[in-house]
């Protein structure tokens, strides 16, 4: 037992690499602070365009959404980061991650917002438009608040996935938590840094998982 602890959770090593790991955590949090709002904004834009109900535009949106549902985000990131320089577009790892997440996350968030907007009865539109609100105002003040509440569990769930997905930034050598942990592990020849990173992810995301479980069960039972 002591031996296992010594290998997987060696306090001495942990203290040595902790500053490094914390720096990685800082980058992960920064990444989340950027990718989640970008994804949400992109998703809202997708849902807004969809709500205009222009037939050909909507076909294009379905293609867009299905394309990114089929496309692994890691492949997207590699394409953006390693591929674009060949045509003279040099991107920082951070910019590459931002672009990849904008494309990927907005398609998922877009689907969720679309479902939410569909769940709001048509009478809400009519009542709001009849009182003189513009399309945009109707969406902004009447429909979207209800839509968001209806799909809140899905929004939280997708946000959880986006946060977990920031780990792929380690592949383009962006120094987030996982990247820092792997680097530290290769320096100290001990898995403690990776275990520490895993524990940090758990501490960070477990509350969201609990919250989600609560929502999901209520949602299904209520049907």
């Amino acid at each position: 037992m002591a031996e296992i602890l010594d290998t997987f959770f060696n306090i001495e090593i942990l203290l040595r690499v902790l500053p490094f790991i914390l720096e990685g955590l800082g980058m992960t949090l920064l990444l989340c602070a950027i990718t989640v709002p970008i994804g949400l904004a992109g998703g809202l834009a997708v849902a807004w365009v969809w709500s205009l109900k222009k037939r050909y535009v909507n076909w294009a949106l379905v293609v867009y959404v299905d394309f990114f549902r089929a496309f692994p985000p890691l492949v997207l990131l590699i394409f953006v980061y390693f591929g674009l320089p060949f045509v003279g577009v040099d991107l920082s790892p951070f910019a590459a991650v931002a672009i990849a997440f904008l494309l990927n996350a907005s398609s998922y968030y877009g689907e969720i917002f679309r479902a939410g907007i569909e769940s709001v009865p048509h009478g809400q539109w009519e009542a709001a438009r009849a009182s003189g609100l513009s399309r945009f105002q109707t969406m902004r003040y009447v429909v979207l608040p209800q839509a968001t509440r209806n799909v809140l569990p899905d929004l939280i769930g997708n946000t959880l996935e986006v946060v977990k997905l920031t780990t792929i930034a380690s592949v383009v050598a962006l120094g987030e938590l996982l990247h820092a942990a792997r680097l530290a592990q290769s320096l100290v020849y001990n898995p403690t840094p990776i275990v520490a990173a895993a524990l940090i992810y758990l501490a960070l995301l477990w509350p969201a998982v609990r919250l989600l479980r609560h929502f999901e069960h209520r949602h299904l039972v209520a049907r």
Binding site: T167, L178, V195, L202, L205, V209, L212
Partner: peptide
């Protein structure tokens, strides 16, 4: 559900 899959693979 809380751990990123990449972390699980790497562990």
């Amino acid at each position: 559900r809380a751990l990123p899959p990449l972390v699980v693979i790497i562990i």
